[in-house]
Amino acid sequence: EFTQISGYVNAFGSQRGSVLTVKVENDEGWTLVEEDFDRADYGSDPEFVAEVSSYLKRNGGIKDLTKVL
């Protein structure tokens, strides 16, 4: 089950073990991109978060400006 990723309007994530599946949706709710990120592939949590965040930004993730990150 996908849940909204904090700080984004149209990005959602689903966690299974160490694998986080993220997706970005358009205004109609269609999935634009979907990608798996395995936490085990990264040396640290900040590196993992930075990679996921960068992916979302590159692929149309819209920041939720009503929330302070």
Results as ranks from 00 to 15, higher is better:
E1D: 10
F2K: 06
F2Y: 09
F2Q: 05
T3L: 11
T3G: 06
T3E: 08
Q4R: 14
Q4M: 09
I5C: 12
S6I: 11
G7N: 05
Y8Q: 05
V9E: 04
A11G: 03
A11P: 00
A11Y: 03
F12W: 12
F12N: 02
G13T: 07
S14K: 15
S14L: 14
S14H: 09
R16W: 07
G17E: 03
S18W: 07
S18D: 04
V19W: 03
V19N: 00
V19Y: 03
V19D: 00
L20A: 00
T21Y: 06
V22H: 01
K23C: 09
K23S: 05
V24P: 00
E25I: 15
E25M: 15
E25S: 12
D27T: 11
D27W: 09
E28K: 12
E28P: 04
E28S: 10
G29L: 04
G29V: 04
W30H: 13
T31L: 09
V33F: 12
V33D: 05
V33K: 07
E34L: 11
E35H: 14
D36Y: 10
D38P: 01
A40N: 12
A40M: 09
A40C: 15
D41K: 11
D41V: 07
Y42I: 00
Y42P: 01
Y42A: 01
G43E: 10
G43H: 10
G43I: 08
G43T: 10
D45C: 15
D45P: 03
P46M: 15
P46K: 14
P46N: 15
E47W: 04
E47L: 06
E47Y: 03
E47N: 03
F48A: 01
V49L: 14
V49S: 09
V49Q: 12
E51I: 13
V52M: 03
V52W: 09
S53N: 14
S53M: 15
S53D: 14
S53C: 15
S54I: 08
Y55T: 01
Y55W: 15
L56N: 01
L56F: 01
K57S: 13
K57H: 11
K57C: 15
K57L: 12
R58S: 08
R58D: 08
N59Y: 10
N59L: 08
N59P: 01
I62P: 00
I62L: 10
K63V: 14
D64N: 08
D64Y: 09
D64I: 09
T66G: 09
T66Q: 10
T66W: 11
K67E: 13
K67R: 08
V68N: 12
V68L: 11
L69K: 10
L69V: 14
L69H: 13
L69A: 14
